[in-house]
Design a protein around this nucleic acid. Sequence first.
DNA 1: GCAGTCCAAATGGTCAACCAATTATACCTA
DNA 2: TAGGTATAATTGGTTGACCATTTGGACTGC
Lengths: 227, 227
Amino acid sequence: MSDQIITRMRNWITNCGLTEGARLPAERSLCADLGVNRTELRKALLVLEAEGHVTRHVGRGTFLAKVSKSGKSGRIDSTISALSESTSPIDAMNARLVVEPQIAQLAAMHATPKHLQDLRRLTTQMRDASTWARYEELDGEFHEVIADAAGNTLLQAVHKIINRVRLVVVWRKIDTTASGPRADYHSFAEHDAILDALERRNGSDACAAMRAHLDSTLTAMTTPHGT
Amino acid sequence: MSDQIITRMRNWITNCGLTEGARLPAERSLCADLGVNRTELRKALLVLEAEGHVTRHVGRGTFLAKVSKSGKSGRIDSTISALSESTSPIDAMNARLVVEPQIAQLAAMHATPKHLQDLRRLTTQMRDASTWARYEELDGEFHEVIADAAGNTLLQAVHKIINRVRLVVVWRKIDTTASGPRADYHSFAEHDAILDALERRNGSDACAAMRAHLDSTLTAMTTPHGT
DNA sequence: GCAGTCCAAATGGTCAACCAATTATACCTA
DNA sequence: TAGGTATAATTGGTTGACCATTTGGACTGC
């Protein structure tokens, strides 16, 4: 499919080290380098031209237009805003339930001492959080550290996307006037269980503990939060 | 300039009164209506396809895309090119192993008769594929239909991202000169097993069958492909 | 040495015939 | 009549030769 060629060309452009305004290799040599025929390459170039990334002139060649080499985060941002328009809160939580337990399982294998140390620090800080906003911030960091510990950059990115879509989609129902989580807040013990499994390098326990944690959160979210 | 044709096509689409999923006139008649030759029209259609506004199928025609999908794909593309720079082939396959089995499990619950019918058709077509490229295309569609059947737009998007990053990252090692998969190709039975579990609405079986399929593919990928 | 000219090579663009997939239709058989 | 099968028509996709433009160097004349 030519869709793939377009992606490869985008990739090539960002990696070829050419600055804006530079001339690309001729079509006939470029398609030999990439191992595709000229028609496929021209299809990709046409799309890139329509997007404004390159300009082409007969007899002269193809040139890079001014492409802002924005970092990954900016592009992920636009993905998130697009996805959040068509995702329901339930979908977001279910997606989290699909990915995070297995991320925890991988983290049990690959977590470094630094990761475990950070997680221990975070569990302590969460217990001391005086506001819900502060707690949420620490909780998000807790999950991000685990995703990082899994050692898979693609899964880490997926985790980031899912969680940020979730933050956009599920509106905070937490009473922001409250002072903070009580000492017996259920998530404390659940976080401890996850961390304990990670320290024991027990992947299946970590997976189960993470699933229990998310289930518990989902239940709390869908239940009216009276006492 | 073909830029103008693209604009005219955009206007034509918005004014023609066709609803989403409707079929456009055939290229040969459309380019007569618009007074342009087929090459120019096809350039415009290619851009519109890359933008996600239309989809095209050999022998069937060109169709207006679902509006929910339009606009997202282009942005997902840039996300993919960014991610593929920092993802290893092993990471890509592992990410697939994390997400797809559970997607299959959800699909067992939510698949519509239409989904199952499409999957049955695809399994047949894959057996008849005369080239590896054709088989890969159908296989990709098979997995996409399952992701769609899971009924979770966020998971579907995640699945799409992972698979397209994988396509960029793991370079095709398949001998493109070969005629196509043999009749006893292992994936045939594995696809059948997945489809069978989906038709029986058995989520755990579907999950296991998908995992077995991906494991098998991963093994084949990492093993030198002698006989 | 220099300006001008010409021409060949290289480049992106175009076209018509052909290919492959799909669908519609006619036809046959039970 | 129902259903299957072969066949033709339709559709989007591909290919290779060819076209139009630009560039750069060789050549010429002064």
